[in-house]
């Protein structure tokens, strides 16, 4: 009963409030979608409809040909939560056989004596991604690239499963454990450097980030320098390149020495 009295143009309250609301909407829409777009000096529109579409947020397709190819090959590795979950015993066994060819640099127990990374107990996702990147050319190394070229997807998954299965061991020459430095614990907020542990373990572990404890200082340093120079570029969102570029040579040295001196017990498993 009251609804019929309210929602009718005979009710002046209804008429006025609807008219004012619609009027305001039309005026603001006119300004926002037509007047203001044409007031932008750097914009050129084909017509009113083009201006309205632009103000509505429709993406404009530009006719400027193909997008330029990226300057360097980037990682194509895709990981989902099931890619490497629950490897079978057969997979680990096949990985062990394949790993014999890796032992010359990475050590028969996955502990390197040659400043190559220690792989024993490394996260499967890390080994999986790096091998894929070596195979695709997103990451290159005179020694590693030829080894990775002929690996199949299954080989890579098996190797990842095998090394993740191995127990973590102390480094070949364990060093005296160093205290953490400022760059390791806090990063440098104003230079956009997160604490190392935000991805590499002590605070959080982001998928695809290795633990670093007990790795060779020479290796960590070389990788940071390669990221900084852009020579290594298989970090998908450029996070390591951005961080390494902003680090001073001293900070790179400190971070490398700190992680090299840590025992494997210091690794906090986030998985």
């Amino acid at each position: 009963m009251s609804t019929r009295e309210l929602f009718t143009f005979r009710n002046p309250h209804f008429t006025v409030s609807v008219a004012v609301t619609v009027g305001l909407l039309l005026v603001t829409a006119l300004v926002g979608f037509i007047v203001l777009p044409f007031a932008q000096r750097h914009e050129t529109f084909a017509g009113v409809w083009d201006a309205i579409c632009s103000a509505a947020g429709n993406p404009r397709v530009t006719q400027q040909g193909e997008a330029a190819p990226p300057p360097a090959k980037t990682s194509e590795a895709v990981l989902t939560s099931t890619t490497l979950a629950h490897p079978s015993q057969q997979s680990i066994g096949r990985g062990a056989t394949l790993a014999q060819r890796c032992a010359i640099c990475h050590g028969p127990t996955g502990i390197s004596r040659a400043d190559s990374p220690n792989l024993a107990g490394q996260y499967a996702s890390v080994i999986y991604k790096q091998l894929l990147d070596f195979r695709s050319g997103a990451r290159t190394n005179a020694v590693m690239s030829p080894f990775a070229t002929n690996l199949s997807d299954q080989d890579i998954a098996d190797l990842a499963a095998y090394y993740a299965y191995l127990p973590r061991l102390p480094a070949y020459h364990p060093e005296v454990q160093l205290p953490p430095t400022r760059i390791v614990v806090y990063g440098a907020p104003l230079r956009g450097i997160a604490p190392c542990g935000a991805c590499h373990g002590s605070l959080d572990n982001k998928t695809g980030s290795p633990w670093l404890e007990g790795q060779s200082a020479a290796y960590i340093k070389a990788q940071l320098q390669a990221f900084a120079s852009g020579q290594r570029h298989n970090d998908i969102s450029e996070q390591m390149r951005n961080i390494a570029r902003a680090m001073t040579p001293d900070e790179i040295e400190e971070a490398a020495n700190y992680y090299a001196s840590q025992p494997p017990e210091a690794i906090q498993r986030a998985d």
């Binding site: 603001t28 829409a29 926002g32 203001l36 777009p37 632009s54 103000a55 509505a56 947020g57």
Partner: peptide, 8 residues
């Protein structure tokens, strides 16, 4: 979000 809606 389009600039027009931001203005409105």
């Amino acid at each position: 979000v389009g600039a027009g809606f931001k203005f409105v």
